[in-house]
Each structure stands twice: as structure tokens, then as C-alpha cells.
Amino acid sequence: MGLKTAYKGYKAYSYLEPGVDYEVFEFAPWNWAGEYLIPLDEAQEERVKRLAKEKIFIALHEHPVLFPKKIEETIEYNKAGREFCAYDALALSYYDCVFDNMMDGTNTISSKSGWKWQDVIHDLGMRLCDIAHQDFLIHCKRVEDIYRAHEEGKIAWVACIEGAAPIENELDRIDILYGLGVRQLGITYSESNALGNGLKEDNDGGLTKFGKEAVKRMNKVGMLIDVSHCGPKTAYDVALYSEKPIIASHVGARALWDSKRLFHDDLIKAIAEKGGVIAVEAAPHTTMTKTRMTHDIDSVMEHFEYIANLVGIDHVSFGIDSLYGDHVGLHHVFAANLSKKETSNNNVEYEEVPYVKGLENPTEASWNILRWLVKHGYSDEDIEKVIGGNAIRVLKQVWS
């Protein structure tokens, strides 16, 4: 189904010897939950194929790596410090650009609490080494790289750090990350840090003075700012203080599902009013709705339509936040790190799903987002905006 003609079969770290240079883990098949496609008629199928070929599709938040078949082995897998990018699965997708957040919240190489500077650099360096040995992913540092990937049947790979805790109180580490090719940095990842408060906190004091200096530095160097895991006041402060547009790379509308993980209307509006983008996510049991009381592509798209109606089609996109493996199982393994208990939908009773139907992995997400938009009669112009055009508008303002 994919259009990635440049993929020639490269496997992650294939320049090394398994069992000698690294510990071997058995990975889950990338499509372990099956391959679900939204049904379309013949005309709709043809339109999907045309749009996938013509339009640039950007995933604003993903973890496009393989996870162990025995998901409980993930802790040891991550301690080994070498995640395996699922090149073959990505080649089947419609994506032209993927924002890869790497280990991030599960980066526990040297500490069970995660987020250590040395571990983040280790993770980034390993991935850059692997990417240097292949010619399918383009390390994306500018908008032109996205256009080139689209034209050449490749994928532009954007290195992201989901939270700024690793910079500690060192502004220059923002420059270092940028110099190493990172192009998006989150303010917090649920826990508070020197910049501001995370969504775990009962009280949110907003952006700190150091946080304001960090925002200013990110604006200067051209680092895209993400506020997805911030407390509401901290995120609101960033939206107001930043001179350039920001994004919420993977969130939803709290008006539809009362979880601390999702955003109130006023925060969504504040981001949009400064020219930013709100990308809708589908990590298990987040973007549910009272309408459906479950989690699947239709509940996720209910959040998408709500946000589009609230702030306009020019300010919404997708950051599905999926991976290749058992995502629900991963949340159970890393419950404390992933802030699951702290964002448990205010004790609302709901049935846990084994996977998010239609959006379980990055490849399936790329297929079904486009199919859903076509099936529901969105125009070519609006589809182009939400799958990539809105993001490119922001990137041109920030990365330049």
C-alpha cells in the first residue's frame, strides 16, 4: 500500500552482528493486532491513492520503533540503549515525514526515573548512527528536507525530545540539541522541571523565569516548542510568551473526555490564536469520548472535528503517538513513567481496549486517517492542511 519507492530493505543496525554487538530481543510483528482498513467504495479508494501520492503527510508525534514480543522485556530492551526503527513498516505507510520522539518517557538506560542528559544523548547518538548507515530516512533539519523526501519516495525523520528535563538549568543544552539535529523540544514531560510544571501536578505555577529564558532561546535557535505534557497554566504561558507559533503535538479536547492529559478549550484557542497547531493523539485510553465510551479511530476523529470546529481547520493536525508493539502492555509496564495513574480520566468507568482499532501503529494510522477523511467528505484542500500543510506553515516560521 505504501508509496515509499526508495526503500531497499534495510533493517536497523544490520551493520552489526546480532548476539555479539548487541543483545537480541524477539520483536512483535509490526501488525501484531491485525491490519484494519476503513472500508471505502471504488471511487474513494482511487481518491485515497491519489491524495497519498500528491499530498505531503506529516506525523507530528510518533515512536516508530519495534518493541519486544514479550512486552515485559521492554525495560531490559531500553536499558540496552538501542531501539530498532521499523524501516520496513514505515515503508508501507503514507507518511512523508515522521516526528520521532525516540525513548523519551521510557528512557531508563541508567536510571529508573529516566530523563538523564547522558541517556538522551546516548539514545540520539545510537539512532543517528543507524540512520547514517541507510539511505531511506532523511535526517530532517529544514522544511526542504520534507519536500525532498516526498519527491524521492523517502521519509524525512525529525529528531524530537519530548520533555526538557535533561537540559536541567543549562540554556546552552538547547543549542547542543539543535546542533545534534533535534528540531522539537517539549517544555515538560508530565513531571515538573526547571522550566515549568507538568500535568502530573495538583498545582501549576506556570512557566518559570528560567522557562521564559528557555522559550526565548528556542525561538532564537529555531527549535519547535511542544506543550503536550505541560500543566495547563504552563502551556498557556508558553503560548503567550513564545514569539513564534508552538504546537501541542499529541493531545485532545478535554471537553469530550475529562482527563488531565487533554486540553481545555481556552488553551486550544490560545495556541491557535498565536498561529500554532493542535495535533490529535491516540495513545491508548486518552482520546476517548462520552459518545462512544471506548477508544478507536472514531473517538479520535471526534476530538479532531471538535478542535477543527473550535479553532478552524488551519490549526489542527495529527500526532497519533503510536508504536510497533503492544502499546497498552507498554503502559502497564511503565505506568509510573508514563503518568498513567495521574491521568486516569477522573475515575470514569470504561472498558480497557487491547489496542486502538484503526490507529494501533504508525503505518495503520497513516492509512486510516486519510481513508476516514475521504470517507467523511473532506475536500482535497482541507485534507492537505490537516495531514501536513498546517504543520509546514508552522515549521516555515520556526525552523527558518
Results as ranks from 00 to 15, higher is better:
Thr108Glu: 03
His315Gly: 03
Glu281Ala: 11
Glu305Ser: 15
Gly114Pro: 02
Val311His: 00
Leu51Ser: 09
Ile71Lys: 05
Gly389Tyr: 06
Leu60Asp: 01
Glu352His: 10
Gln397Gly: 10
Val221Ile: 13
Cys160Ser: 07
Met218Asp: 04
Tyr7Gln: 04
His295Ile: 12
Lys209Trp: 10
Gly196Trp: 00
Ser110Met: 09
Glu62Phe: 01
Thr287Asn: 15
Lys260Val: 03
Val143Leu: 03
Phe99Asn: 04
Tyr241Ala: 14
Lys396Phe: 13
Asp296His: 14
Glu191Tyr: 10
Ala279Lys: 06
Ala239Tyr: 03
Leu40Pro: 06
Gly19Ser: 10
Thr108Ile: 12
Ile278Pro: 03
Gly81Asp: 14
Ile247Lys: 05
Gly325Ser: 12
Ile387Arg: 04
Met293Val: 15
Asn347Asp: 15
Gly319Lys: 01
Ile268Met: 10
Pro362Met: 07
Gly275Leu: 05
Trp399His: 08
Tyr178Leu: 04
Lys154Pro: 02
Pro232Phe: 12
Val300Leu: 10
Val398Cys: 08
Pro166Phe: 02
Lys154Glu: 02
Val333Phe: 04
Thr106Arg: 11
Arg292Asp: 15
Thr5Gly: 13
Glu302Cys: 09
Ala270Tyr: 09
Ile271Met: 08
Leu330Phe: 08
Lys8Gln: 14
Glu273Pro: 08
Ala89Arg: 06
Phe99Cys: 04
Glu168Lys: 06
Val353Arg: 08
Gly125His: 13
Tyr306Arg: 03
Phe84Lys: 00
Thr234Arg: 00
Lys11Leu: 09
Arg173Tyr: 00
Lys274Arg: 15
Glu191Val: 08
Phe25Met: 07
Val24Phe: 01
Lys212Ala: 12
Thr287Gly: 06
Ser299Cys: 10
Pro39Val: 09
Glu26Ser: 13
Pro39Asn: 13
Lys79Trp: 06
His63Asp: 03
Tyr355Met: 10
Glu17Asn: 13
Leu370Glu: 01
Arg173Met: 06
Ile307His: 02
Ser113Tyr: 10
Gly325Thr: 08
Ala272Trp: 12
Cys230Gly: 00
Ala282Asn: 13
Leu66Gly: 02
Gly275Met: 05
Val300Pro: 01
Tyr36Met: 04
Ala91Val: 05
Gly114Val: 02
Glu83Met: 15
Phe210Val: 09
Lys385Arg: 08
Gly114Asn: 05
Leu3Lys: 05
Ser113Asn: 02
Asp380Trp: 05
Lys53Phe: 15
Met301Cys: 07
Asp258Phe: 14
Pro39Met: 13
Glu23Thr: 15
Asn309Gly: 13
Tyr7Glu: 05
Tyr241Leu: 13
Leu310Val: 07
Glu281Lys: 08
Leu40Thr: 12
